[in-house]
Simulated scan of single mutants.
Amino acid sequence: MTKENSSQITEMVLVGFSNHPHTEIPLFFLFSLTYMVNLFGNTMIIILVVIDSCLRTPMYFFLCHLAFLNIFYTTAVVPKMLFNLLASKKVISYDFCLAQTYIALLMGAAECIILAIMALDRYVAICYPLRYLIIMNWSVCMQLAGGAWTISFFASVVPLYFTTAPICGPYIIDHIFCEVPVLLRMVCEDTSLQELMMVIGAAGTLLLPFLLIVLSYLRILVAVMRMHSAEGRKKAFSTCSSHLTVVTIYYGTGMFMYMRPKYLYSAEGDKFISLFYAVINPALNPLIYSLRNKEVQGAMRRAIERWKIFQRQMILS
């Protein structure tokens, strides 16, 4: 998408689910509910970590970053998708389309790296419990978080900016939002360079973090199997189960979307995959972490109790 040609494009058709018009109203209510669950759940996690001292640990610090990017990612995608489900003219401005593409890449890369850091955190907590707070001190956590966002930016946004190519009409995007694999189908010239950069970027932000997660959990598995206490093994597995569930869902769909050749693209299949990692998965994350986590459940109970006490004090005053 060169500046010369692309600057003349003002808007493009965003097909979404218009090929199945009878599904648009039900999907509007379904995705609206999913988006509200996403906003409420992820915001709740951030608030609980901020107000509850018991959750001020490295694990929940990184969970806050995960919650923030889930909110930001879906907010860049879902409101426009909901609007188009009801609109008769289903379009998206060119500038907003580019913004969605950059945000999708940045947030996707950041989520991969943060999930890898969370796996590393679990490895240190289980394999080196006595040195955990020394190794994962707040200075290290801040550096890891800052490094995750910096690496994500330079590994995803910068390569995309310098490998843009002109797109050709008709300017019709048969997808639910703008992202690189979809826009590559509209490029006028040979896309070998763009595909290569996408695979390299995916290898750096998807594959390498995934390998780190696998290695971390292999070491965790060895350490857990050496534990003599069945209760200790159960506790160790329970602290990792939520993270493993999120990793499996996110990496499975992300790798399939960004690490496959262009000839395997399918418009309808891509919509389903993108829905899963950009809309559904961010809403599932807080449910997975809160429903299966006693610490988060305890923080929620304490927050509710404090709110009840505050209300009683307001009534009495």
Results as ranks from 00 to 15, higher is better:
M1H: 13
K3Q: 12
N5F: 11
S7L: 10
M12W: 09
L14F: 04
L14D: 05
N19V: 11
H20I: 11
P21D: 04
H22M: 13
H22F: 15
T23Y: 05
I25W: 10
F28M: 08
F31M: 15
L33F: 15
T34E: 11
V37W: 08
L39R: 13
F40A: 15
V50L: 13
D52E: 12
S53Y: 07
S53R: 14
C54W: 00
T57D: 14
T57K: 15
P58M: 09
M59R: 14
Y60S: 01
F61Y: 12
L63R: 10
H65I: 01
A67H: 06
Y73A: 12
T75M: 06
T75I: 01
A76E: 10
V77D: 04
K80V: 15
K80D: 14
L82K: 02
F83K: 09
L86C: 00
A87L: 02
S88K: 09
S93V: 03
S93A: 04
D95N: 14
C112H: 02
I114D: 02
L115Q: 12
A116T: 11
L120W: 14
M136A: 07
M136V: 13
W138I: 01
S139W: 04
V140H: 00
C141R: 05
M142K: 15
L144C: 15
G147M: 00
A148E: 00
F153T: 07
F154E: 05
F154T: 07
F154I: 06
V157N: 11
V158E: 05
L160H: 12
L160M: 09
A165Y: 08
P166R: 10
C168R: 12
G169F: 13
H175P: 00
E179W: 07
L183R: 04
R185K: 13
C188L: 10
D190L: 08
T191H: 04
S192C: 05
S192N: 10
Q194T: 06
M198S: 09
M198N: 11
V199M: 13
T205D: 01
L207C: 07
L215K: 08
V222D: 15
M225Q: 14
H228K: 14
S229M: 02
A230P: 00
A230R: 14
E231I: 04
G232Q: 09
K234N: 00
K235L: 14
K235G: 04
T239W: 00
T239P: 02
T248C: 07
Y250V: 08
G252P: 04
T253P: 01
M259G: 09
M259R: 01
M259K: 04
R260D: 00
Y265P: 00
A267W: 00
A267N: 02
E268S: 11
G269N: 08
F272E: 06
I273N: 07
N281G: 03
P282D: 10
I288C: 05
Y289L: 05
L291K: 07
E295V: 12
V296F: 11
V296C: 09
A299Y: 03
A299E: 01
R302E: 09
A303I: 02
A303M: 03
I304R: 14
I309L: 15
F310V: 01
R312C: 04
S317P: 03
